[in-house]
Amino acid sequence: MRRLLLTTALLAACSVERGTGRFDDQHVTDAGADGGGPVAGDAAPPEDLSSPAGTWMLFLENSTCLRALGQNKEQIIWTWYTVDIEDLGPGGGDGERRLKQNLRFCTQEVSAAIANLKTYVPDRIAEFLPPAKLEAILAGPTPGDRFFSTELFETFGLRTIGLDEPLPTTASDERVFDQDEDGHPGVTLVLGTDLCEIYIVQRTRTRLSGEVVDGIRVEGTFSADLDKVVLEATQSLCATANEVTPSLLANRFVLVRIDGRNGAYDFDLNDDGDIGCDEIRDARLFFAEAGTATPRDPDPAACEQ
């Protein structure tokens, strides 16, 4: 009996007590969100878009098909811009207005396609892309009135390239340069969480065509020509030949006012008088949640040709 008691006491002494760690909870505030959430406008948005001048967010949803590794799947590219619109005055038609748009690329996301891998477009690329200036025509201020823009011509990692000129295929091509200044040719994207880095050059041509929804929103479709070449990759598999073509589905855009005027939300979160890309990232999440500019899921039928 004594032996049994001794054994029991010994084993009881071996029970393990769980400790607690010495790391405090970690709270990191989003950049740009220090000032809190957006401020709603003073009044409800007007139905008419009579004074378009101001700062807007442009959301593009470009539906493409990615053919690689024997598969052909829809790959959606979402891009968010800040757009400063200047009203140049009346156009030729009745109620028509000419607009000047100053676009700044802020962030881009690409849906997972082949092998469920996502392509990540680092936000730092935005620092190295020059703003684009477009002109647009607003046919009228009332809902349903048409909106057209001139072509947005954007390149990644290319000094000069013609509208239809074939893209360079090697890093040594003199038209290629290290645009994001990371020591690699072209622009660096990340494939998968950390699968590999790919160094690409890219050209996109985008032309918007939409209509007024209300006093702070324009929506519509756009034509897009996208050409992309993977120059190099950290893993050879990531440099495997692939082809991007338009899908069967339409591309979609939303232009939404974000400067607090005319009842719009004000995304100048740090009150510096300018709405930058940090604030656009918050606006993006806000309007996605609100249903105003919500990315859709890829459609398996989009590339069944």
Partner: peptide, 22 residues
């Protein structure tokens, strides 16, 4: 700056080590 992930979710130490914090 990975798109789709709020910055607050990727700043500071991010570890899935099962032994963390002890």
């Amino acid at each position: 700056d990975r798109p789709g992930v709020p910055a607050s979710a990727t700043k500071g130490l991010q570890t899935g080590n099962p032994g963390f914090p002890g």
